[in-house]
C-alpha cells in the first residue's frame, strides 16, 4: 500500500500536525516506505493461527470499584497553557 500526497495531508490533519505543502511529497514517500517494509509480514502464512495479543500468558488485571485517586486539581492543571477557576481554558469550540 502506498500513501499519496492527499492521504498524507489527510492523516496530518486528523493528527492535528501542521505540515507545509512542500513537505507533503517527502512525507508521503517516507510513510509509503514504512508501510512497504511492514508489508513483508504478509508473506508469512498465518492460516488457522489465533492472533497473539500478549507475549506473557496474563489475564487482564482488574481493580475493585473504589475511589483511590483524584483530588489533585493543581497537579492536573499544572502543565495547561491556560487554566482558570479550576478549568482548562481553550480557544472557543462550540457547535
Amino acid at each position: 500500500m502506498s500513501i499519496d500526497i492527499a492521504t498524507a495531508a489527510k492523516v496530518a490533519k486528523l493528527a492535528r500536525i501542521r505540515v507545509e505543502e512542500d513537505q507533503l511529497p517527502k512525507l508521503a514517500e517516507q510513510l509509503s516506505g514504512i508501510l512497504g517494509f511492514m508489508e513483508q509480514l504478509n508473506e508469512v502464512n498465518v492460516d488457522g493461527i489465533e492472533p497473539m495479543v500478549s507475549v506473557t500468558p496474563m489475564r487482564l488485571v482488574r481493580r475493585k470499584d473504589a475511589v483511590t485517586d483524584g483530588n489533585i486539581q493543581a497537579q492536573v492543571l499544572k502543565n495547561a497553557p491556560d487554566a482558570r477557576e479550576g478549568f482548562f481554558a481553550v480557544p472557543k469550540v462550540v457547535e
Binding site: 481493580r63 475511589v67 483511590t68 485517586d69 486539581q73 492536573v76 477557576e85 479550576g86 478549568f87 482548562f88
Partner: peptide, 17 residues
C-alpha cells in the same frame, strides 16, 4: 482509574493522571 464519579464536584477534582 480510581477517580470518583461524583456529580457536582469542583472542576477537575475527580481526575487522576
Amino acid at each position: 482509574s480510581g477517580a470518583s464519579t461524583q456529580v457536582g464536584s469542583e472542576p477537575n477534582s475527580n481526575v487522576a493522571f
